[in-house]
Amino acid sequence: MSMAFDILLALGIVFTAGTALGLRDRIASVTGFVITGLLIALSFVRLGAPDVALAEAAIGAGLTGALLLRSALRLKPAEGSKSPALQRFLAASIATGLSCALAWAVYTAPGTALYPALVSEGLAKSGVDNPVTAVLLNFRVWDTLLEIVVLFAALVLVRIIAPAVPQPEALGELMLPFMRVIIPVCVFLSGHLLWQGATVPGGAFQAGAMLAGGFLVLFMGGLALPTPRVMAFGKALALAGLAIFALAALATEALTGTLLFYPDGDEKIWIIAIESALTLSIAAMLYLLFCGMPRRPAK
């Protein structure tokens, strides 16, 4: 019975993705992308992964959609010359062959999963109850540190290129009451998601994305425009996350002799501290990635 729902959802995902990629109007394509992202978040819930569903809905559909919409209004459309028929046929056959081979390879891959047993036996000593948070912030915390470094590298690239800051128009009288309600709710829900990530689905990335959404609403309403003071604050927050994480890694090396091996009994404190720094830092980084970072005019 529930298989019918899964089949319909999967068909809907492929259909909206195909429509989004095939449309000529760029804003409609970006809208199709956001809809596909939300349907994929629903499919992650069906697959038993609520943390990933939250992150995909907030970051994958919401923030990426905002970024793409910002650029869709600023990039010039390419000339609409269609590719020659031979190229299209070759591309279609290669794409179909590759996707069928991928599906067949994953479907028939043999072997048993090693990780679930290892994760369940390590969960009790890891300091948190949510297995995904335990993997992200205790067992594979090195990968999370490098992920923050990748975000930081993207921020440096955007800083070097320094695209123009989007100028929000005046949005009318309804925006201020909306902001008065939404911003406190964003802050509250972000803190709640951060705290509850230790036991139920949630965590630092979802909380950071929600806070970034709050910053973007402030930006659209004209209240958090990237003036030099706001920029300095944003850059300080973004740097602070990476700095605190790196300092914590070095401190664990000094305290226990192994890199990123938390001291016994104190794991939860370390995890919560790193997660809080990560939330603020991710929110600042996503806001700066959206607004661009203007260079100071050369004197």
């Binding site: 949005l171 009318g172 309804l174 925006m175 909306f178 309600v181 939404i182 709710v185």
Partner: peptide
């Protein structure tokens, strides 16, 4: 409540 609030605001902005 959140969906109704943001839906109303977005409808207003698009109509505007």
């Amino acid at each position: 409540v959140l969906v109704a609030l943001s839906g109303a605001t977005m409808g207003h902005l698009i109509a505007r």
